[in-house]
Design a binder for these strands. Structure first.
Length: 454
DNA sequence: GCCGTTTTCGGCCCGACTGTTTTCAGTCG
């Protein structure tokens, strides 16, 4: 699916147009990008059916660019913009406090094109001398560079997992066993790269297929036991093929985390064994390895769900047979935080209800933004009342799932909520979130200071 | 560049905060 890739291209066009000082178009491109990002169907399918313009926010011109990309792999407009403004917008704007306008000044006055350039001029104290910049900003930028660098190479689980599953599906006909490993198997929030482990009697064939998938942008390495590719969109995927007698121990080893593995290996040593990716050994004898559960069992431990393998006490708990039970998807009975088209969500309430039912939910709470957060579609009181009526109607139609009516209110700088008490009384659920004033000092706003305020 | 139970042209959600200023521009959500 190229949805993410196309969204990324549109975001980049938006950023570059914004640097150029073009009005309104950036917003149009971003809106289209957002909608494409959250599309549940493959954009290529829509293109084949000639339905690109059915995507909200996509009109003639953007549809044309999507078409161009799908057919040629390029978008001329973007190439032109990049030529005119050759800066790495994505990483530069990841620096907290840096937006298009400042990036433009930094490029034009100091030739800053990427994070390395930025770091150099910041350290040379040249930023503070620019008009509109100052010492504080320079320091803030310097602090932000590291964070931006770390963030750069990681991808959200929700983006990566469907891609990884699709790859496994492609490989399945040629393997006897296959599994995700690494942080994606541990279901970490963000993923550096994807690890896949397989057993196959025809490794060459598997590697051929893996490295020639349509989604591959570049083959980084190709061998019989290990190959690495980079996908369109930048995610790196490693595929390892191991012997079936070692699949379990390899899975254990490559799933990690590193800290977890160190602890588990210590247990093995204590028992007089040796644990590596090839198996659990007593001298030269392999006493486990084929199956991951068997490895933990041989060490006198409960099998530990990957999500818990972070060396936060799970090893001791597994030894004592006192691992906590993980909540499974089918045990999740509801969701108390949901946005819809009434504020900044992508779907109607009805669509959310239908989807929630599919997930087996027994209740949901619709909690759209209210009040001052207008950019996220913050509703006023009147609109909340309108929404209440719609929810009431839906409750009648869907009697096997309960729809709570909630709101997401904003916690203001003084600690108050930006909604009236009467509104609070009207709804079932109130979420309160901080959406502004993130950089306050602790002393800045204790309640006792409140009386001093206007 | 998109969109339209106010509009096919003319709008395009707002408000708070910060750091730079001496009244504002840029960023963020």
């Amino acid at each position: 699916m190229k949805n993410q890739e196309i969204a990324k291209i549109l975001y980049e066009i938006a950023d570059l147009l914004e640097i150029e000082g073009v009005e309104f178009k950036p917003r149009a491109y971003r809106k289209a990008a957002q909608n494409i990002e959250s599309l549940s169907v493959d954009i290529e399918e829509l293109y084949k059916k000639g339905q690109l313009e059915k995507i909200p926010g996509v009109g003639k011109s953007i549809a044309e660019k999507i078409k161009e990309y799908l057919e040629t792999g390029k978008v001329r407009k973007l190439e032109e913009l990049r030529e005119k403004i050759p800066v790495d917008i994505e990483s530069l704007s990841a620096v907290e406090g840096l937006g298009p306008k400042m990036i433009k000044v930094l490029y034009e006055k100091l030739g800053v094109k990427n994070l390395d350039d930025l770091e150099r001029v910041a350290k040379q104290r040249r930023i503070r001398r620019l008009k509109g910049f100052g010492e504080k900003l320079e320091k803030k930028i310097l602090e932000g560079i590291e964070i931006a660098r770390q963030r750069q190479h990681r991808f959200l689980l929700g983006f990566v997992l469907p891609e990884a599953n699709a790859i496994m599906e492609e490989l399945k006909p040629y393997v006897e066993k296959i599994s995700l490993a690494g942080s994606i198997r541990r279901r970490k929030e963000t993923i550096g790269d994807v690890d896949i482990l397989a057993v196959s009697s025809q490794p060459e064939k598997v590697m051929d297929i893996f490295t020639s998938m349509k989604r591959v942008e570049k083959v980084l390495a190709k061998g019989i036991t290990k190959s690495s590719v980079r996908l369109h969109g930048g995610i790196q995927v490693d595929l390892r093929i191991v012997g079936k007698e070692s699949f379990g121990s390899a899975l254990q080893y490559f799933t990690g985390s590193k800290e977890h593995n160190i602890e588990v290996r210590k247990i093995a040593i204590k028992l007089g064994y040796k644990l590596n990716e090839y198996g659990l050994f007593k001298g030269f004898e392999r006493i486990a390895g084929r199956d991951e559960k068997e490895v933990y069992k041989a060490l006198g431990m409960q099998w530990i769900p990957p999500e818990l393998r972070e060396n936060r006490g799970e090893v001791e708990a597994a030894l004592n047979k006192s691992l906590p039970k993980i909540v499974e998807y089918d045990e999740v009975k509801g969701d108390l935080q949901m946005h819809t088209k009434w504020s900044d969500g992508a779907n109607t309430i009805e669509e959310m209800v239908i989807e929630a039912k599919k997930l087996g939910h027994k209740f949901i709470a619709i909690t759209d933004h209210v009040g001052s957060l207008k950019i996220a579609g913050g509703m006023d009181e009147e609109k909340v009342m309108e929404q209440a009526k719609e929810i009431e109607k839906l409750r009648e139609r869907f009697d096997d799932i309960y729809i709570f009516h909630g709101i997401e209110a904003n916690i203001m700088k003084d600690g108050s909520l930006d909604v009236s008490n009467s509104l609070l009384k009207q709804v079932d659920v109130v979420l309160a979130s901080v959406h502004s004033a993130f950089r306050m000092e602790e002393k800045d706003d204790s309640p006792r200071n409140k009386s001093d305020r206007k």
